[in-house]
Amino acid sequence: MYRIGELAKQCEVKTDTLRFYEKHGLLSPSSRTDSGYRIYTENDAERLRFILRAKAVGFTLAEISELLSIELDKSNWACADVKGMVDSKLAHVEAKIAELKFFQVSLQRLSNACCGGPESAEHCSILEALETNTDNIKCENHDHHHDDSQYTKNCQRKG
């Protein structure tokens, strides 16, 4: 039997986290003392560890709730149901990674096109590209004291 603070410490989370999970129906104490303290059993601790592991691999609270309902009623679910949830989450993560890679390439292209100098931003290639189309980035042609070979290489590659 654990009090809320003991369980939180054992699982390396804050007591507010346990209260949050309770509020969202993921975890509830098995009982309460006469003075109202939450009491958790070893089964509650296992449930909390399940929640934390599911959260650590990216599942949302709603998804964790669904996984918990499957966990509690395994005989009425197929392994394919669980795998389907994981595969769906994986596809979502892969799509997000692709989106982030696109952002990375686009931002790098914008950064490479700009001299980053102290001149007025009236002819800033980044602002011009965002005003029109980032695929047609023109390099700024400012005279600065920097490695011109790298600057020229970036402009030739993009411009």
Results as ranks from 00 to 15, higher is better:
residue 133 N to D: 09
residue 130 L to W: 01
residue 124 C to Q: 00
residue 79 C to N: 14
residue 100 L to R: 15
residue 48 L to M: 05
residue 55 K to T: 05
residue 131 E to V: 09
residue 157 R to H: 07
residue 138 K to M: 02
residue 23 K to R: 11
residue 95 A to M: 13
residue 46 E to D: 09
residue 142 H to F: 09
residue 114 C to P: 10
residue 15 T to G: 08
residue 65 S to N: 09
residue 24 H to T: 12
residue 85 M to D: 02
residue 134 T to S: 04
residue 60 T to N: 03
residue 69 S to Q: 08
residue 77 W to D: 11
residue 55 K to F: 11
residue 136 N to Y: 10
residue 135 D to M: 10
residue 145 H to T: 12
residue 75 S to C: 15
residue 141 N to M: 05
residue 92 H to F: 02
residue 113 A to V: 06
residue 103 F to M: 14
residue 33 T to W: 03
residue 81 D to E: 08
residue 65 S to R: 04
residue 142 H to M: 05
residue 91 A to F: 15
residue 1 M to G: 15
residue 158 K to Q: 14
residue 7 L to G: 01
residue 95 A to G: 11
residue 131 E to L: 06
residue 139 C to Q: 10
residue 136 N to Q: 14
residue 93 V to D: 11
residue 17 T to W: 00
residue 156 Q to H: 06
residue 37 Y to E: 13
residue 57 V to H: 03
residue 144 H to N: 14
residue 6 E to R: 01
residue 73 D to T: 11
residue 39 I to Q: 01
residue 142 H to W: 07
residue 43 N to H: 12
residue 9 K to L: 02
residue 159 G to M: 04
residue 54 A to G: 09
residue 78 A to D: 13
residue 43 N to P: 12
residue 157 R to V: 14
residue 115 C to W: 11
residue 63 E to Y: 03
residue 77 W to R: 06
residue 119 E to T: 02
residue 107 L to M: 01
